[in-house]
Structures are given as structure tokens and as C-alpha cells.
Amino acid sequence: MRRTALAGLLLLVPLAACSGDGDDGEQTLTVLAAASLTETFTELAATFEDEHPGVEVELVFGSSTTLAEQAADGAPGRVLATADEVSMGVADDAGVLATAPEPFVGNTLTVVTPPDNPAGITSLDDLDAPGVDYVVCASTAPCGAAAEELLDSAGIEAPPASEEVDVKAVLARVVQGEADAGLVYRTDAVAAGDDVAEVAIPDADDVTTTYVVAPLSGAAGASADLAAEFVALVRSEEARAVFTRAGFGEVASP
């Protein structure tokens, strides 16, 4: 079964073709998901398609805030998964959620550098060193809000060299050697493998983000059922194993 992963910053009109029945009778389930879920949701989408013959899962990844705003503006997705509850609140406040959002995993930040670590970064404090160029997510994205909180608590005063649209964009800047370091989720460091070196942050667990998922309203009949079943898969023990391998943690206690 063919499955498509799309960038999150898409016009709403092209997205309109991503839901409903195809000419060959197949159904497409469009899932809007935080960029940091790219690897895990791609695996879960394959599982879902195997369990639902005739269904194609179309994944749209991007900044949680951007995707939530698109959903609030009527983008015809069927499921929304964000990297924090604040972003999901944008869609909730707009009345486009079919049910209350539910938490499913947690994540923490880490520092990554190019494999040879040219700036010699060994701790979060080194981001304050003269000449060090580090990058973060924009503060409107969950990864940016978390980075801002972590940097403030550590007393880092040097501003980032740039603020990227989402965590995958931050990771790309580091992998391409365009930054000395970047603040990304632990899971992104795991996914990057040997393309980066990781500098662990001892107090990273003090800033944990909780991912939430919900079906979007507007679907009916079989489409609504598929959305609910995908949400159930995301919150299942089977998915838990996928998330754990990717480096995700438990949902933080309130």
C-alpha cells in the first residue's frame, strides 16, 4: 500500500484532496502530526494499513502549532497529534475536535552537534561560549517553548543563531554543518544516529513535553471510525513499544 508523508506547511486546497474515497474505492485517512513523530507515525501508519486493507494513511508532518491552526481553519485532516497540549488547545478552542485529546507519550530535549563537534560543546553551558552558533525551534512551536524554558532555567544568555519552524529543521541545520549545535528532542537525536553527536542535558527531565492526539470533527461513518481506530492504535501497547524504541518516555505526571 502506498503511503505519502507531506510537509506540514501546505495550502489547505491541496489538502482537500487527501481525505475521502478515491476513484478506485480506497479510503484515505489524513493524519496531521508533529514533525518529531515522523519516524514513529510512519511505522504506525504502515501497521494501520496492513490491518485495514483498502485504506491509505496520508501523513502530514510539521510544526504542531501550524498544523493545529490549519485544522482550526478547516484543513480536512481526520486525526491531529501535537507535541504539547497548548497547540492542541488551538484546535480544541476552534471546536474542531471530535473527542477530548488524550496523552500518549512524553519527550525531552537534548543538545546535538555535528559528529566532529567542532565547537567542543560538552554541556548546555557551552552554548553561552563566544562564537558558538546554536539553533532552536521558533518559540511558537512546542520544541521552541521547551527550549526557551530550558535555556532560561540554565541561565543561557547568548541568543540562538536562528529559530527554525520545527524540530526537524533544527536537526537539518546541524546535520548539514550550518550550526555548531541545536536543541532537539531526544527522539530526533536517536533518529539521526551517526549524523550527529549528542550532548546529554542532566536536568532535561525537568522540561518534559506531553504529546496528545485526537480525532478531528467533520468525519462521519467509516471515516470517523477509522480516525478513532488510528487514535486507539497510537495509544496502544503495540505503539508504546514503537515509541520506546524511538526514545520517547512516559507522559509526565501532573
Rank of each mutant, 00 (worst) to 15 (best):
D188E: 13
A189H: 00
A189G: 13
A191R: 12
G193T: 09
G193K: 07
G193R: 11
G193I: 09
G193M: 09
D194K: 12
V196H: 02
A197S: 15
A197W: 00
A197L: 03
A197G: 13
E198W: 07
E198A: 15
E198P: 08
V199T: 09
V199P: 14
A200F: 08
I201A: 11
I201N: 13
I201M: 00
D205K: 09
D206V: 06
V207H: 14
T208S: 13
T208W: 07
T209E: 12
T210R: 10
T210S: 08
Y211T: 07
Y211P: 06
Y211A: 09
V213A: 06
V213E: 02
A214E: 03
P215N: 05
S217H: 04
S217K: 08
G218V: 07
A220V: 13
A220T: 15
L226F: 15
A227N: 09
A227P: 10
A228N: 14
A228I: 09
E229S: 15
V231F: 01
V231N: 02
V231I: 06
A232E: 15
A232F: 08
L233P: 01
L233A: 04
R235D: 04
A239F: 06
R240F: 04
A241W: 03
V242P: 01
V242D: 04
V242F: 02
F243G: 06
F243K: 01
F243R: 01
T244W: 01
